[in-house]
């Protein structure tokens, strides 16, 4: 069984440190995700590939507690696993909507640091494991660990 990305050109794959593949307008600097051929701000067609930051902060979030209707292709019925969804500010240049690995509202917060991971979410007709991108709560930095240690 091979591991395959949900679609080509969405994130670098395979990669130990995957990054989302966006585009940047050569004329006005607008950054989009995924990459697109024209700029939604200035209309330029001079868009260049642009890799996005792997860590960011959670700008808005919710949970997906029921299996979405088609065209959702992941596990449904009793196999459905709830997931979080949010917009993540990356590199102060774009907000990307993504799955969150965490779906417990108690463990999600506006402004929390998150990082990109690839997660398996279904098996395709050929038996391949299909992976998509998601953000997970980032490992606490040294400062946060120090704070917790003092309590």
């Amino acid at each position: 069984m091979a591991t395959v990305p949900v679609a080509e050109g969405v994130f670098t794959f395979p990669s130990d440190d995957p990054q989302l593949i966006g585009s940047r307008c050569a004329d006005c600097g607008m950054v989009t995700f995924p990459a697109q051929g024209s700029c939604p701000r200035c209309g330029s067609t001079g868009m260049e590939e642009h890799l996005l930051a792997r860590r960011g902060s959670l700008w808005a979030w919710t949970t997906q507690s029921f299996p979405p209707p088609p065209p959702y292709a992941g596990p449904a019925g009793k196999d459905f696993v709830p997931f979080g969804v949010g917009y993540v500010v990356l590199g102060d240049e774009v907000k990307v909507e993504a799955r969150l690995t965490e779906h417990d509202p108690e463990k999600l917060a506006h402004g929390m640091e998150v990082e990109l991971v690839l997660v398996p979410f279904r098996t395709d007709d050929d038996g391949n494991e299909v992976v998509t991108f998601a953000f997970r709560p980032a490992a606490p930095g040294p400062h946060a660990a120090h704070q917790r240690g003092r309590q």
Partner: peptide, 23 residues
Amino acid sequence: CPEWYGDVGQFVTTKFFGMKINK
């Protein structure tokens, strides 16, 4: 929107409303 957006379960109007009011 790209096709994978629906495939992974993000093409859902109700979750937008959840995010918008939560924020």
